[in-house]
Structures are given as structure tokens and as C-alpha cells.
């Protein structure tokens, strides 16, 4: 059997089972098929361990056996395409959301997404965050043209369940994980300015303004858009400046 055929047959057996490939040498104890089963079992165990490592709050919320069942189903549906196990699980939140039939499952989907985003921020590149001092020398007439982009660690997401409260309950070992309910949409900002990952909720209008900057709007364009919707255009520009100062203090933005 050619090498490519052999590898294709062995991989299909590890992923999907079936009869052992003919390429295997005969073995007595244990027989060849059982020996190949060692690899098939190890594959699923490694991915399940990776998920438990990446999603500890979800695992705690779900409980041991339900999480194991969830992991088995996700692994069966999602073969790894990653070089590093730490990258496995990227789609778990969306996968859970697609199958969420009740509020608890919706919370678990959002909890998974929140944990994944924290992990993404944890080992993102440091970037070159601008601070308030970097803008101190910008002349007033140049402010409208200022543009920014997200630092590599910045994550934006929204929740409609108490998923973040459930995450906090796990982190603090408080034992008081909240009941699953659907509520108002809450916007979140995650950023890692140095080595510690930080997050906070964003009021809806602040989240919208930040998203406009991250989408490429200049500071002047943002101010104009806010002024067009506000009864007091001057107050809108001041609000935009205050938000920008806050995002810069948080280390969330790089100058473009």
C-alpha cells in the first residue's frame, strides 16, 4: 500500500472507526485493530482534555458527565485542524448556540464564547497601544482625522444571559451560579493591556461608538455621527472625547 493510501486509511479509522486498515501488520496480543484503537481513544481524550482546559467555567456549569457528552459530540462534529491543541474549541460557542433549545443551553453557549474570547486575549500579541499622553501633542485641528484600530488582544462580544455572572461565580468559587434567564443585551469589552486580562460591560451607546472607530471611522466622523443624533452637538463631541480617553487609558486602541 502506498504511503498516502496508508495514512488516509489509518486516519479514517481513527476518526470514524470501521474495520482496521489492511496495512497493519498482524499482531497477537492485543490484536492490530485493538492497538489502533489506542490512537483513536487517545485522539478523543486529548481533544476532550483540551476543551476542559479551555472552558473550565462551562465544564463546571454543565457538570462532569454532561460536559463529557457535550465534548464527545463536538469532537465528533469538529475534527481538529490545528497544530496546537490550545487552538481547538474556537467554534464551540457558536456550535452550542446553534443547538440551544432553552435558556440554560443559551447561557452555556455564551459562557463558552466568553471563555474563548478571554483565552484569545490571554496570549494575543502585545500590540502598540496608544495612551492619552500620545495624543497630548496632537493639535486641535488634527483631532478629527485621528483613526484607531483594536490592539490584538481586544475582544468585543454581547450576551443576553447571565453568562458572565456564571463565569465570575466559577472564578470566585462562590457556588452561586445564576439561574439561566434571557434578558437585555449586554455589550462587553475584553482587553489585555499588559499581562492581566481585563473586561467590563459597555453601555450600548459607548459600544456603538467604539465599534464605529474599530470599523475605521475617524474621530471626526464619529463626532459628526453622534452630533447628528444628539440634541446638543457640543455635548456629543465632549462625550466622544471622554470615551476615547477611557479607551486609551484601558490600552484598547492603536493609532493608525
Amino acid at each position: 500500500m502506498r504511503l498516502a493510501e496508508l495514512q488516509d486509511a489509518v486516519q479514517r479509522h481513527v476518526l470514524d472507526g470501521g474495520a482496521p486498515p489492511a496495512a497493519l501488520a498482524a499482531a497477537v496480543l492485543p490484536p492490530a485493530g485493538e492497538r489502533l484503537g489506542i490512537y483513536a481513544e487517545a485522539y478523543r481524550l486529548r481533544l476532550a482534555e483540551a476543551l476542559a482546559t479551555q472552558f473550565p467555567a462551562l465544564a463546571a456549569r454543565a457538570g462532569s458527565e454532561p460536559f463529557a457528552a457535550l465534548a464527545r459530540a463536538f469532537i465528533a462534529a469538529t475534527p481538529s485542524v490545528h497544530r496546537s491543541l490550545r487552538d481547538y474549541g474556537a467554534g464551540l460557542g457558536a456550535w452550542l448556540a446553534a443547538g440551544a433549545a432553552d435558556e440554560e443551553q443559551a447561557l452555556r453557549a455564551e459562557l463558552a464564547e466568553f471563555e474563548w474570547r478571554l483565552a484569545a486575549a490571554f496570549d494575543a500579541a502585545p500590540g502598540a497601544a496608544a495612551g492619552p499622553a500620545d495624543l497630548a501633542t496632537v493639535a486641535p485641528q488634527d483631532w478629527p482625522a485621528l483613526r484607531f484600530r483594536a490592539v490584538p488582544s481586544l475582544q468585543r462580544l454581547a450576551t443576553t444571559t447571565p453568562a458572565v455572572a456564571a463565569w465570575r461565580a466559577h472564578r470566585d468559587a462562590s457556588g452561586a451560579s445564576p439561574a439561566a434567564t434571557r434578558g437585555a443585551r449586554v455589550e462587553w469589552l475584553i482587553v489585555r493591556p499588559a499581562l492581566e486580562t481585563q473586561f467590563r460591560s459597555l453601555p450600548g451607546d459607548e459600544a456603538g461608538a467604539l465599534d464605529r472607530l474599530l470599523a475605521g471611522a475617524s474621530f471626526g466622523e464619529l463626532c459628526a455621527e453622534l452630533a447628528a443624533r444628539a440634541p446638543d452637538p457640543g455635548a456629543a463631541a465632549l462625550q466622544a472625547a471622554l470615551w476615547l480617553k477611557g479607551w486609551l487609558q484601558e490600552g484598547a486602541l492603536e493609532r493608525v
Partner: peptide, 21 residues
């Protein structure tokens, strides 16, 4: 080898020890 067709089995699978390999 650890996988083919863009997948990774996250295991260290042995090769056949052949001239082709």
C-alpha cells in the same frame, strides 16, 4: 505523521519503514 487532508490527530503515528517512506 500527525494527520493528512488538513486535519491533526494530535498523536505521533508511526510510519511504515519502507524505501518509499
Amino acid at each position: 505523521w500527525t494527520g493528512v487532508h488538513g486535519l491533526n490527530l494530535h498523536d505521533l503515528l508511526p510510519l511504515p519503514y519502507t524505501a518509499e517512506a
